[in-house]
C-alpha cells in the first residue's frame, strides 16, 4: 500500500482480535465461494476418476477418463476451437473497442458522443439467448434476412449455420457484436482517466496526434488494456457458450464446439459424468495456466495488490 499505510503493525499474537473480526466478516464469502466454486472443482476432480451417469453405481477407473478423453474427436475439436475462439474474438474484444473508444472521444458534439456511447453499449445489456434467436432468424437458410438480401443482390444463398465453413464465423460475429460495447466503455473510462497534463505537455513539445496517442496515451492506458486482454481471453470460452448452444449446438461436425460446450454435451447429453469431469479439470488447469502466463508476460503493467 502507498503512503496511507501508517497502521501500527499488528501485535504478534498468533490470533488477534483483528484476525477474528476479519474471519467473521469473511464467513459469507468463504461459504459462497467454498460451496459453489471450490467444492465443485474438488468434486469434479474426484468424479473424473469414476464412471458414473447420475444413476448407476460409481466404478473407479483411475486415469481411464483422462487417457480416453484424448481419443475423442469432440474433445480435441473443442480444445482447438477454444484457442481459435480466443484468437478470432481478439479483434472484436480488444482492437475494435479501442478504435471505437478513440473515435468516440474525438466526437466534439457532447450530446452526440453521449448518444453513441449509450447506443453502442446496448447489445451488451440484452440477453444473449434472446438476441441469438433473433440472429437465428437473420442467419436462417430458408427465410433468413441475410440470404434474402443476398439473393436480391444476385448472390447464391449460403446455409450459414449448417455449413462447416461459415458456422464458426457466425458464432464469432454474434459474440463479437454482443461484447464489443463493454470493452469500449472500459477503454473510454481508461482514456478519460488519463491526466490531461501529460497529453498537453506532449502537444506543447510538438508531438503529433499519432505520436501522442502511441507514446503517451497507450502506455498510460496499459492497466485497462491488460485487464481487457486478460478478461477477453479467459471469457472467450464462456461467452461463446450461449451462442453455440442456441445457434449451432456445437455442430456441423464439431466445428463450432468449445471446451465449455463439450463438458455440457458429455454431462447432459451422453450422461458420461466421468469424461465430462475429466474435461472440466483439464479446462480449469488450462485456463489457470493461461492466466498465469498472461499475468507473467504482461506483469510490468498488471495487477499488483500494492
Amino acid at each position: 500500500m502507498s503512503k496511507n499505510e501508517n497502521y501500527t503493525p499488528a501485535r504478534r499474537r498468533p490470533f488477534s482480535r483483528e484476525d477474528a473480526c476479519f474471519w467473521l466478516w469473511l464467513i459469507p464469502v468463504i461459504a459462497a465461494y467454498g460451496l459453489f466454486k471450490y467444492w465443485p472443482m474438488i468434486y469434479s476432480f474426484i468424479l473424473s476418476f469414476a464412471n458414473w451417469n447420475f444413476i448407476s453405481d460409481f466404478t473407479w477407473v483411475g486415469f481411464g477418463n483422462y487417457t480416453n478423453m484424448f481419443s475423442k474427436t469432440m474433445f480435441i475439436k473443442g480444445m482447438v476451437n477454444t484457442l481459435k475462439y480466443i484468437v478470432y474474438l481478439f479483434p472484436f474484444f480488444v482492437i475494435l473497442p479501442l478504435l471505437l473508444s478513440v473515435m468516440l472521444l474525438n466526437v466534439r458534439n457532447k450530446f452526440a458522443q453521449e448518444l453513441y456511447k449509450t447506443l453502442f453499449f446496448i447489445p451488451n445489456i440484452l440477453a444473449l439467448s434472446i438476441v441469438c434467436m433473433v440472429w437465428l432468424w437473420i442467419f436462417s437458410s430458408s427465410y433468413g434476412l441475410l440470404n434474402n438480401s443476398l439473393t436480391k443482390l444476385g448472390i447464391a444463398s449460403v446455409n450459414w449455420l449448417t455449413n462447416s465453413k461459415t458456422a464458426f464465423y457466425c458464432i464469432v460475429a454474434v459474440c463479437g457484436w454482443k461484447y464489443l460495447g463493454m470493452n469500449m466503455i472500459l477503454f473510454i473510462a481508461g482514456l478519460l482517466g488519463i491526466s490531461q497534463d501529460c497529453v498537453e505537455a506532449a502537444y506543447i513539445d510538438g508531438a503529433s496526434g499519432w505520436q501522442c496517442f502511441w507514446s503517451i496515451k497507450m502506455p498510460l492506458l496499459a492497466p485497462t488494456t491488460v485487464y481487457v486482454v486478460i478478461t477477453s481471453v479467459i471469457f472467450a470460452a464462456e461467452r461463446a457458450f450461449t451462442a453455440i448452444s442456441v445457434l449451432t449446438s456445437g455442430g456441423p461436425s464439431y466445428t463450432t464446439t468449445n471446451l465449455s460446450y463439450v463438458i455440457y454435451e458429455f454431462a447432459f447429453k451422453y450422461y458420461n459424468i466421468g469424461t465430462a469431469s475429466a474435461i472440466s479439470t483439464f479446462t480449469s488447469v488450462f485456463f489457470l495456466l493461461l492466466t498465469v502466463i498472461m499475468m507473467r508476460t504482461m506483469g510490468g503493467y498488471g495487477y499488483h495488490e500494492e
Partner: peptide, 20 residues
C-alpha cells in the same frame, strides 16, 4: 482465493453444482 475463481468457466462447476 476469491479472484482465482474468475478464471474458472461456469461449465466446469456446473455438474457438481447441479448434484449439490
Amino acid at each position: 482465493f476469491v479472484l482465482i475463481t474468475m478464471v474458472i468457466p461456469f461449465q466446469v462447476t456446473m455438474i457438481p453444482n447441479y448434484i449439490l
